[in-house]
């Protein structure tokens, strides 16, 4: 087996999710190369070279790969694909954007959001918002798959893989980067945070999310939201936890004013400890919560912040 892992980047730096994808690659078994593609990403390549289990880092540093647009990045991966039996990325918005394109260009299927690796060609993945788990077998010679990073523990650091430059420069006349507006926050990233506190429709409005901020600061937590809160316009969509948003599995998940629709549970039910705060003691969220607190969140949240 020989595996190519597409590194996730965040503003040019290596994203923590990459170490989880390398862990999934180790379970497939075989030589693992990591592809770092972007502009000015030598630092990310250096970081990837330190992951345990990586044999080689391939560095494609060129302006055409800046912002990891799907058209040039998929063309680059296709140019490298013949060296590999498996191509993996995280199920990040970049992985989801690029890998299906790679798969189609190689005339193979893509397997999305892999949760477990049974063998080099048998995988488990969630369907129907995680309400069923499918075991699938790929008959394609090349396996292209995105990995749910919360299902694999990150590899540790201590390696020193060789970094080799990739000279392939593809053309891109089809798409052009215009701008990016990334939420600036000192808090941990939602997908990788050890503690997450999320608000739902019960928060009432976007301003009230400030009640979560103070607690998040004390706990070093990321702040999330249910789809209902996003649909109601309280907060931006990148905060959404659920089937169609982020999938999280922190040590502690605190759901505030969230009723617990299956689409939300799909995004957080693998959390180690779940706390629910809701005024409706019949809310379905209490069926999955380890600790439930029934009451008015506008009284309970300030008290919780004070007492932490």
């Amino acid at each position: 087996m020989s595996i190519l892992v597409l590194a996730d980047l965040h503003e040019g730096e290596l994203a923590a999710t990459t170490a989880h994808v390398v862990a999934a690659a180790q379970q497939v078994g075989g030589d693992i190369d990591v592809l770092v593609a972007g502009e000015g990403v030598q630092g990310a390549a250096d970081a990837a070279a330190r992951f345990d289990g990586v044999s080689r880092v391939r560095l494609a540093d060129h302006s055409v790969y800046a912002h990891q647009l799907a058209e040039p990045l998929s063309a680059l991966i296709v140019a490298l694909a013949d060296d590999y039996t498996h191509i993996l990325s995280s199920a990040s918005t970049t992985g989801k954007n690029v890998l299906p394109r790679v798969a189609a260009l190689k005339d193979v299927s893509q397997i999305s959001e892999v949760l477990a690796i049974d063998s080099a060609d048998i995988f488990k993945r969630p369907i129907y918002a995680g309400n069923a788990i499918a075991t699938v077998k790929s008959d394609d010679a090349l396996k292209v798959m995105t990995v749910r990073t919360t299902a694999f523990d990150a590899v540790s650091e201590g390696g020193s893989a060789a970094i080799e430059a990739v000279d392939t420069v593809v053309e891109n006349t089809q798409s052009q980067f215009v701008k990016e507006e990334l939420a600036q926050s000192d808090r941990p990233e939602l997908g990788g945070a050890r503690t997450v506190i999320s608000g739902g429709r019960g928060m009432g409005n976007g301003d009230n999310f400030k009640l979560l901020d103070g607690i998040a600061d004390k706990l070093g937590a990321a702040v999330g939201a249910s789809r209902a809160a996003v649909d109601a316009g309280f907060v931006p969509n990148d905060m959404q936890v659920g089937q169609t948003g982020k999938i999280v599995a922190p040590d502690l998940y605190i759901a505030v004013g969230i009723s617990g629709a299956i689409q939300h549970l799909a995004g957080m039910k693998d959390s180690k400890v779940i706390v629910a705060i809701n005024k409706d003691d019949e809310a379905p969220i209490f069926q999955v919560a380890d600790y439930g607190l029934v009451g008015d969140l506008f009284e309970l949240l300030p008290e919780l912040e004070r007492k932490l």
Binding site: V108, S109, I111, I122, P126, I127, G130, N131, A132, I133, A134, T135, V136, K137, S138, D139, D140, K269, I274, D281, F286, Q287, V288, A289, D290, Y291, G292, L293, V294
Partner: peptide, 20 residues
Amino acid sequence: SRVSLMKVETPAERKGGVKV
């Protein structure tokens, strides 16, 4: 199909806990 569906299972149910 290129990918065969071998098995479909219900995920492990999470048990509700206690109210505080």
